[in-house]
Every structure is written in structure tokens, then in C-alpha cells.
Design a binder for these strands. Structure first.
Lengths: 258, 258
DNA sequence: CTGTTCAATCTAATATATCAGTTAATCACA
DNA sequence: TGTGATTAACTGATATATTAGATTGAACAG
């Protein structure tokens, strides 16, 4: 496993892009192409905090800005509301929602539950080519440097790894459903990624790679409890690193009881 | 535990209704009250197979039949499409989808994964009043007879039990998300429930009650593996009883490779 | 008889208008 | 000064009209 100080190799970048390139809507948008385009744009802006929590979304303005009529815009806002990223107040107004820690906990719960079950099943049976693919992803991660400029690529490969687990288990759809409810978590993650030093701390490449390896070791050995424990520790470690950003950005979060 | 040949006691029925009474949309519909009403009606018809797979849904007719305009009808159809119950062909037509076994497998996978994690967490920590509540639900199930007329009530209590597990673990939202993708499974179940003799065989009260009790025993003993295994067996037993209805109703199902 | 082309019809997506409810500002009164 | 009522403006939900794409059937050619 080599660690290089150059930008991520083209292979690492292209693999991540080709698998994850699909786009923001995860196939969950219903409606025509116009609405889909507005939805993707708005979702991106919300998740990237370009439209921060509390922002009022004025339909007449948005329709003009995006050059669309009220109907596809409505479709887009309804989908965003279903994901909890927007709150539509009937007959009144539409606001970007604050980051909701309970939604985040739910997303984390779902992830742990679903992915643990995936790993359990893979430990019982996995196609050799799937295991080989997972191993090669981990190896590819090892070729990505710790440089801040490579953080996005490493993170994408991390996502590829986890997605490949679901693919191998034949349950991609569950991952899609799970991810479609992860908008709050994405925003929280964004608060961290905006700080590149901190991002580096969160995504400690060596730790992540080791975690992935231990998961695969358990799977390969047919040892479901070991694989599941490795995954739990891996995911828990990720969660623990999310230092509480609420003190720095209280206005971004829902008010929660102590 | 007494088994009576009279219709389910009012308490059993009222408890189930008061908890599950919420309605068909699980809070996932976005749009106004008109669209919500049409959505609920259509979903009910689809799930009950009153609108069987393959049925074309003509918007002009539906709008007239339900006394609504095209916009709320559109909202309703889009939500149904998101749940996979309807397929909207752009610029062309809208059809009720066939029952998709892969969607059913996904729903079952999600259920097993989420509920196993719930049970695991409850075995580590559960509020005494929550455990008492679960025990009382099981006791109430024991008071429901095996009579065919009591099948709906028993089934509802079954749902109450499982929902209460999620409530106790603080993850009701995950269950809602899971159930919102269970329309295909609901239709398959419907094929069975239409045959009351078979429904009785599927829902063997004593087995179900015993399964619930073993889950709670594991939880109460703080024995996560035992509780989880009990749940797995319980859910697996339910799945196994779903005899393959495809031979009898091939036209209701998607074509699958053998 | 089969395949291709074309036009009419049908249906969903989008555009625009109207209705229904909410909100904020102003005024009157105590 | 504070409170309640009124009204105009604003915004989302619904209704209706138009556009864009798909489908079907008829006619024609080989």
C-alpha cells in the first residue's frame, strides 16, 4: 500500500465518478425533466449550504431565476419537502429546514442497521469477484494521498466501497432509500468539510482503510460476528468524529431539548 | 392466556385502531388536502387489488370520478409512483404496476435489518414501562380467538407489537420509511388474506404469540443475540408462509428470470 | 402479406389563471 | 401604550389551457 503526495491517480478519480456519477436525485424524483433539473439544482444548493437553513424560497423568484413555470418548481419543492430539506407551510411560505439532529440519528440508525445486515449476509456468502472488487477498491484508496486536495476523491471511494457492499448483497435499492433520507446528515457533513483541516482529521485515510480491510477479512473468513463488529466500529468511529457544530452554528440547527 | 371463540374483545380492537388508525399515507404525502385524499383512496384501491396490476389510470376519468382537477390528481399519482405502485410513462400513460418480487425481497430485507437492530438495542437497554407495554400487547393477542372473523384484529395487534418495538427504541421514523416502501408486499399479503382459510394458516396465533414472547424474553434478559435470533426466526417464519401465489395469478406479477 | 409512413388522437408535462388561506401593516379604541 | 379588528398583499393549492411527446390506425408501396 503506497501513499503518494501527488493528486489522486486518474484511475481512482474515474472509478469513483463512473460509479457515483449518477446524480443527485437517486431516481426518486417523479415528474418531468424540467422539474427534475430544478430539484437537482436546489437540492445541491441546500446540501452545500448555499441555501442555508431558514432561507425562504420564494416561488415567483425561483421560477424566474431558473426560467421555469410554477408547476415543475412545485414538483421540485414537494420532493425536497419529502426529504425533509424544505418545509412547505400551506398557503403561506416555504423555508429551508434547519439541520435536525433527530433526523441525523435516524439516518445513522438506518445505515448501521442496513449495512450490518448486508455484511452479515456477505459473510455467509459472497461471490469471489465481488470480494476481489472490494479489495481492489481498498487498494485504490491506499493510493490516494492525505493531501487536502485529495479529500473529495478519497471520500468518493469510501462511498464506492460501501455501495459495492450493497451491490454484492443484492440490495442496492435499500441503500438508495437510505440515502434519500440523508440530506440532514449531508449538511452536517458539509459543515465539517468546509474546514479542510478538520476534514482531514475526520477522514483519517489509514484508519478508514484499516476499517475496510477488517470488514473484508471478516467477510472472507465467513465470520459474520467479526465482520459485523468491524463494520460497527468503523461506522461508529466516523460518527464520533463529527464534532458538535452546533455551538459554532446554532442558527443552522433545530432547537433540541438537552 | 385464554382463547375465546367470541369476536375480539373491544379492548383488543380499540387498542389496535387507536395506534394504527393514522391513515394510509404515513405522513409522506406532500401537497394539499385534495391531493392527499385522492392519494389515500387510490393507494387503498391498489393495495386491496381493487385496481389490479396492469390497470390503466386515465387521468381525465379519475379527475371526474373523484371530483378533482388534474393538479392534485397529479400529486397523488406522483406519490404512488414513488412508492412503486404506479408507473407513469411520460407523455403516454399511467399503469398500476405488477407485483414485483424483487421489491418484496427488498422490503423484507429492510424489515429484517431494521427490526433486528431495534431488538439488539432494546436488549441493551429498555424502559420498564415499554417492556410492560409490549408484554401486555402479547397478552392481548392471547385473548383474540383463532376465528376467521378475528384475523384482522390479530393482525393489527401484530403490527402494533412491531411498531411498539420501534417506538421503544426511538426509531419510529425508520419504520415509517420502511413501510412506505412496502406496497408490493401489502399486495402480496392481500392475495393471501383473500383466502381466509389460508390466512388462518399463515397467522397461526399461537406461533406468533410464542415468537413475540421469545423476543421479549431475550430483550428482558439483556441477551441481544438471543433476542435477535428469535426475531429472525419469527420474521422468517412469516415469510416462509407466503406460499407462492404466482402460479395462481401470473398476470399480477413482474416477469422474473428463473 | 409485411413493412413504412403519416396523420389523428390521446395523454402527460408545463404554463397560466384563479381561488383559498396566511401574514403584516394600519387604524380605532380603551 | 397595548390590544383587537380590518384590509391589502403575499403565497401555496387548485383549476384550466396549451404544449410536447407517444400511440394507434389507416393508407400505401413492394
Amino acid at each position: 500500500m503506497m501513499s503518494s503526495n501527488k493528486p489522486a491517480a486518474p484511475r481512482a478519480q474515474s472509478l469513483a465518478k463512473s460509479i457515483l456519477g449518477g446524480g443527485a436525485d437517486l431516481g426518486l424524483f417523479e415528474g418531468g425533466p424540467t422539474g427534475r433539473g430544478v430539484y437537482a439544482t436546489l437540492r445541491d444548493q441546500i446540501v452545500k449550504l448555499d441555501l442555508p437553513p431558514g432561507t425562504p424560497l420564494l416561488r415567483s423568484e425561483l421560477a424566474e431565476t431558473h426560467g421555469v413555470s410554477l408547476t415543475p418548481l412545485r414538483d421540485a419543492l414537494q420532493q425536497l419537502a419529502k426529504e425533509g430539506l424544505v418545509k412547505i407551510y400551506p398557503q403561506s411560505r416555504t423555508l429551508v429546514t434547519p439541520i435536525d439532529m433527530s433526523a441525523i440519528r435516524e439516518a445513522q440508525f438506518m445505515r448501521i442497521a442496513l449495512e450490518t445486515e448486508v455484511v452479515r449476509r456477505l459473510a455467509k456468502e459472497i461471490a469471489p469477484e465481488a470480494l476481489a472488487r472490494l479489495r481492489s477498491i481498498v487498494a485504490l484508496q491506499g493510493s490516494v494521498s492525505d493531501q487536502p486536495s485529495d479529500v473529495p476523491t478519497f471520500q468518493e471511494l469510501d462511498e464506492v466501497f460501501h455501495q459495492t457492499l450493497f451491490v454484492a448483497a443484492g440490495h442496492v435499492q435499500s441503500q438508495r432509500i437510505m440515502r434519500s433520507h440523508a440530506g440532514h446528515l449531508e449538511r452536517l457533513r458539509r459543515l465539517h468539510l468546509d474546514d479542510i483541516d478538520e476534514a482531514g482529521r475526520i477522514l483519517n485515510n489509514k484508519d478508514v482503510i484499516e476499517g475496510h480491510s477488517r470488514i473484508l477479512d471478516g467477510i472472507e473468513a465467513g465470520d459474520a460476528p467479526a465482520a459485523m463488529d468491524a463494520l460497527r466500529q468503523h461506522l461508529q468511529r466516523t460518527v464520533d468524529r463529527m464534532t458538535d457544530k452546533r455551538a459554532a452554528f446554532p442558527e443552522y440547527f433545530t432547537q433540541e431539548k438537552p
